[in-house]
Write a protein that binds this DNA or RNA. Structure first.
Lengths: 133, 133
DNA sequence: TCCTTATTCAACTCAATGCTTGATCAACCG
DNA sequence: CGGTTGATCAAGCATTGAGTTGAATAAGGA
């Protein structure tokens, strides 16, 4: 059905998928191993159909995959997509922290005695471009 | 307005906030330093009001904070909340990977010659509990 | 074959999002 | 003071999301 799984789109779906406590609990459960829809639905008060939909959301987000075992459809966690999310977050988190260090260094040179580049040069390596979504 | 900023709720909001390309681009921009609403709105085709709302979403998610500078309201990235997100993801990602190593080891002992614990013991440290949301 | 188990599809409701336009508030500037 | 800049509030509209009930499909088991 989906024709354009752009990088943006994949992040949209993955972050959206984790923005629901039911789905996060499903992920938490799957981190300990595969499970069927019925097993996954057990802890919740909602209907099986609702859980089935949650799993579809996780699947479309690339966070889980499914196999076949007779009439069962075991769900497996896909760690690669989780990694993609931390990669996105860390990218900007680290740029930000670098900016912070630069600012500290700048303040040190402004306030302090001589302009000694003690640690980080405020002008150097200003984390080139971050155009992305 | 909000009375219950439960851990669950904060994660809900934060992941939801990142599930939108506009808001992710705002985060990307802010990683390079604070910016005003007008500056943040500049790259987008949508109205200033829409961007203002996006910023409010990010603020309620704890991902950004705001200060005062005359009639301007500079927005700053809050890296702590970004860190909380990677922490959540990594928790289950690492449990999952540990499970994988355990499985590999188990297969090795089952398939292989002797039950030598070459690397990881399938029975050991089974990553205790992961009840959380 | 009939019955049960496992899961999904379809249609519908209800609440929340994302966006818009128009008006308002707050602070600076001449 | 009057105008401009920066940003938010308010109301309305279209779309999407989470949940439901009821029916359908699919594979095993007696």
């Amino acid at each position: 059905m989906i024709v354009d799984p752009s990088a943006d789109d994949r992040l949209d779906r993955a972050f959206m998928a984790l923005a629901d406590p039911v789905r996060r609990r499903i992920i938490a459960r799957l981190s300990r191993g595969p499970a069927t829809v019925n097993e996954l639905a057990e802890p919740f008060q909602i209907t099986l159909q609702a859980v089935s939909k949650h799993i579809q959301v996780l699947e479309q987000a690339g966070l889980v995959t499914r196999s076949r075992d007779a009439q069962r459809r075991p769900v497996h966690l896909d760690a690669a997509q989780l990694e993609a999310l931390t990669a996105w977050i860390d990218r900007y988190r680290l740029i930000h922290e670098q900016q912070f260090r630069n600012l500290d260094a700048l303040l040190a040179t402004t306030r302090g005695a001589e302009a000694a580049t003690s640690d980080a040069d405020p002008e150097a390596g200003t984390a080139q471009e971050a155009t992305e979504s």
